[in-house]
């Protein structure tokens, strides 16, 4: 293993360890709201992810390092994106798909072309959409599936009443929704922590949120008092948008290396995710947008690099020609 590879692997281990730290307060909130059932699901999904990684590595005869925490992250993030009452088998299927069909066969932590957790969630959405979006009511029985999520409200064109209580509920995730991906205040605090630890991630997150905000302001799906602001609030706080901004758009395997490219990647992913949300038949389709962005961005980046190089060569050659002309 070369020094560069070792350094890359160390960076990824640190990244995924930091994301696990970020998921911890979200898990605590999920347990506080939904009880020990949520904790069981999180822990069991993490265990299944690790087992799948070990068994998959043995069967596929590839060297994998479980200590890079990526499998633990996949398990925890998947569980937190799902309802607290999701059947265990569905959660395990999503986690297994993410590890065995996306991560291991396509290059692993370092070079998988798609974000495994997003792919796993998209798979579960296509196979069991009624279960994946059947959220329990906050404070009600965990078996209930009648909770009205913000995503569902947006798809129906219904708005929240613009008062401080409702806005506070939205920001703290006190609406029916994913068990751990709803508390925006915690997610934003976590994103600050992630940006301090991995400074380049700030470009991804900023680009993504900027494009999502502009789309939400320009094309609101709801009509109410203070339409644009309420649309902005609801769009950003619904579903797994900010969760994706913090954890998927910053994924080291799919993210570009240069800060300017990261910013453009964030903007592109934001636009694609918002378009998917507007036109998809599912109430939450951010993960599909992430997958399309993962697939399309490398082709765009090659074009951008080529154009930049052409621009760099052109002024330098013209200045060199001018210098020659002046000298005589």
């Amino acid at each position: 293993m070369t020094k560069k590879t070792k350094k890359l692997r160390r960076n990824e281990s640190v990244f995924y360890a930091d994301t696990l730290v970020l998921l911890l307060p979200l898990a605590v909130l999920a347990v506080y709201r939904y009880g020990l059932g949520a904790l069981c699901r999180i822990l069991s999904c993490m265990l299944v992810a690790v087992l799948c990684e070990i068994i998959g590595s043995l069967l596929m005869k590839c060297q994998r390092d479980v200590s890079d925490c990526s499998a633990l992250f996949i398990g925890a993030a998947t569980a937190l994106m799902l309802p607290a009452n999701i059947p265990y088998l569905i959660a395990f299927s999503g986690v297994s798909f993410a590890v065995l069909a996306v991560k291991l066969p396509l290059g692993g932590t370092q070079s998988a072309p798609f974000v495994p957790t997003a792919a796993g969630f998209a798979f579960m959405t296509l196979c069991w959409s009624d279960k994946v979006f059947g959220y329990p009511i906050i404070g009600g029985a965990i078996d209930s599936v009648n909770g009205l999520s913000l995503s569902h409200m947006l798809s129906l064109g219904t708005s929240i009443r613009p008062n401080y209580a409702n806005i506070f509920d939205v920001l703290t995730g006190n609406y029916s929704g994913p068990s751990g991906a709803g508390c925006i205040i915690v997610l934003l605090a976590g994103s600050i922590y992630l940006c301090l630890r991995h400074r380049k991630s700030v470009f991804n997150i900023l680009g993504f949120l900027l494009s999502c905000s502009i789309m939400a302001l320009l094309f609101p799906r709801i009509s109410s008092n203070y339409t644009h602001l309420i649309s902005l609030l609801m769009e950003l706080c619904s579903g797994v948008l900010i969760f994706s901004a913090v954890f998927f758009v910053t994924d080291p395997a799919t993210s570009p290396s240069r800060p300017s490219h990261r910013f453009m990647y964030g903007i592109f992913t934001g636009i694609v995710c918002m378009v998917m949300r507007y036109f998809s038949s599912f109430e939450e389709s951010t993960c599909f947008g992430v997958l399309i962005a993962n697939a399309a961005w490398p082709a765009i980046q090659i074009r951008i690099t080529k154009i930049k190089k052409k621009k760099q060569i052109a002024p330098r050659t013209s200045s060199a020609v001018k210098g020659d002309a002046q000298n005589g």
């Binding site: 072309p113 998809s280 399309i292």
Partner: peptide, 23 residues
């Protein structure tokens, strides 16, 4: 998975991504 198996899985991911629009 080198070669055709990885290609099939890659195309499967693209198919999943586009299925998000149609359902």
């Amino acid at each position: 998975f080198k070669g055709t198996p990885a290609v099939f899985l890659y195309v499967a991911m693209l198919s999943i991504a586009f299925a998000g629009l149609s359902g």
